[in-house]
Simulated assay, not measured.
Amino acid sequence: MSEAAGGGNSGSASIELADGLWDSEADDTLVCQAVRDETHDVKTFVLKPAAPGRFRFKPGQFMTYAFEIDGETIYRCYTISSAPTRPDRISFTVKRVPGGPVSNWLHDSFKPGMRIRAVGPMGDFTCADLPASKYLFLSGGSGITPLMSMARTFHDLGQREDIVFIHNARSPADIIFREELEGMARVDDAFRFVPIVQNVSPLAPSSGLRGFLTRGILDVVVPDFREREVFVCGPAPYLAAVKAILAEAGYEMARYHDESFNFETLTASEKAVATEAELQLETEAGPTVRTYTVEFTKTRRSVEVPETMTVLEAAKRAGMRLPSSCSKGMCGTCKSKKVSGTVAMTHQGGIRQREIDAGMVLLCCSKPNSDLVIER
């Protein structure tokens, strides 16, 4: 009794809670505290500040991380999967992508005690700014993470919002956070979790819904979906399918909110961005528009870029595959070193002033004012 009260067990771990807020401008270093298996190919990474501090963010926001892999700095954005109601730690959840340099490094090499740099939080995909009496959360695959942050937040606050959470996965074994979501539904009758799986097997049976999200499923599972604020996250085809279902059903699309971050698959998404840029920019360059030469040192490529076009858009039109995600200057994925030249850059928080002072630029929102040399 006296030993427990006095803390006589010197070998036990202590619980340290910070008082101040973590500020990435002052110290951008985060330390891996734990790694947790969610499914056979999904892990959650729990982080704490190098110096004591608490995180402040809105559920659904993301962070930009700088990973040092094989002597190269690679930037990636990952949604925060933890809830701001538990501010002493922050977590992000990553699915292993075949051939993905960052996801594979995280799964194979990132361990407790290791450090990374981060900036954020960022993003406006959040229920915090859109209060409602009823919500419908729709997610596909690893798109579950921002909605999980929202669900955890409501659950911790105990406000009993009416939430229906429908998640699509390949198989029962691929349902991320399944046990936690089912537990939340058991103790809160205002929260319903409905998984839909595409495939089942003798080793992975399912008594729930099978196939894909359809208008029929919405009508049966959540017949009042037209009355709900809808948040959707997942791959681009999933978002397109959901929007089509809701629009056809007469849903008021002003209450529809989606997010699609797919940072490591540079195939379909890259093609889609390049095609869109090509259509938008087809008539941009005229006889009075100046064109500059942009040289990329690592790939030894040279691209002609009109002054009306961003460096990223021009590079993709030329067939280059450069890391990119948001294309809005928010995430920092396309951050690159400018060796020489000048640009006009209009960003939305994806780069800090000290990085700009050091010659870094975001290619997605930088238009050339002169010939450029970029370290890419």
Rank of each mutant, 00 (worst) to 15 (best):
C77V: 09
R76F: 06
S103F: 03
V102Y: 03
T79A: 14
E68P: 10
L147N: 06
A66Y: 01
D124N: 10
M63Q: 07
G99I: 11
Y75C: 11
F55S: 00
D129A: 14
L136C: 08
I74V: 12
D162I: 04
Y78I: 06
I144C: 00
E161R: 09
G60T: 10
S133A: 11
P121E: 08
T126E: 05
F110N: 01
A83F: 10
D156L: 15
Y78T: 14
D156F: 06
H155W: 13
F137K: 06
A132W: 05
P121R: 11
A118R: 00
M63E: 09
G113D: 14
L130S: 12
R56Y: 01
G53C: 04
A128I: 05
K43H: 10
R89L: 01
I69S: 13
M122N: 15
N104E: 10
S139F: 02
I163F: 07
P121M: 08
G60E: 12
K58S: 09
A50Y: 05
E161T: 07
L130W: 08
K43C: 12
A51I: 12
M148L: 12
D41Y: 07
R160N: 15
K111S: 11
V164M: 10
G143P: 00
P59G: 09
G123L: 10
G120E: 05
D162Y: 10
G158P: 00
D108T: 01
G99N: 05
Y65Q: 15
H107D: 07
S109M: 02
R89V: 02
P121D: 04
Y78G: 12
W105I: 02
I166D: 04
G71M: 09
P121A: 08
M122Y: 09
A66H: 01
P131F: 07
P87G: 06
S91T: 15
S109I: 00
F165I: 08
M114P: 11
T73L: 13
T145C: 06
P84G: 12
T64R: 09
F154H: 06
L130N: 15
S133V: 01
N104H: 05
T85C: 15
R76I: 12
S91R: 01
F92M: 15
D41T: 08
P146D: 02
R160H: 15
R96W: 03
S139N: 01
F62N: 03
K58P: 01
R115I: 03
E161K: 13
G141W: 04
R160S: 14
F45K: 12
E72A: 15
T73A: 14
C77Q: 13
I74G: 02
G120H: 11
I69C: 05
F165E: 05
M150C: 07
T145I: 07
P87C: 00
F57T: 07
L138A: 10
A83K: 13
R89E: 02
R86C: 11
A118G: 00
I74E: 04
Q61L: 14
K95E: 02
V46K: 08
T153Y: 03
D88C: 05
